[in-house]
Amino acid sequence: MQRAIEETGIPTIIIAALPLVVKQNGAPRAVAPLVPMGANAGEPNNKEMQRAIVKDSLKNLVSIETPGEIVSLPYEYI
């Protein structure tokens, strides 16, 4: 899906709980906080963490220069 969108000329970034799967599927840009599947954007009701993850994801949208790069984000919810 991310590839289909990127192909039409819109830059994309994905917040991944399973970065290796995302890499395998050829995601153009990805960030990976330490989160379980289903809470990719952070702990439920933890506005601070969610906000930081969303903000950092968007910053990485701009800063990632290599297709397929996955940047780890320093947030943990297990």
């Binding site: 899906m1 991310q2 969108i5 039409t8 819109i10 830059p11 994309t12 970034i13 599947m37 968007l58």
Partner: peptide, 17 residues
């Protein structure tokens, strides 16, 4: 992708995987 192009969005933030 077509829907997003039509809306003229500049970027997409995805959650999946």
């Amino acid at each position: 992708a077509g829907e997003l192009v039509e809306q003229n969005v500049d970027a997409v933030l995805m959650t999946a995987g």
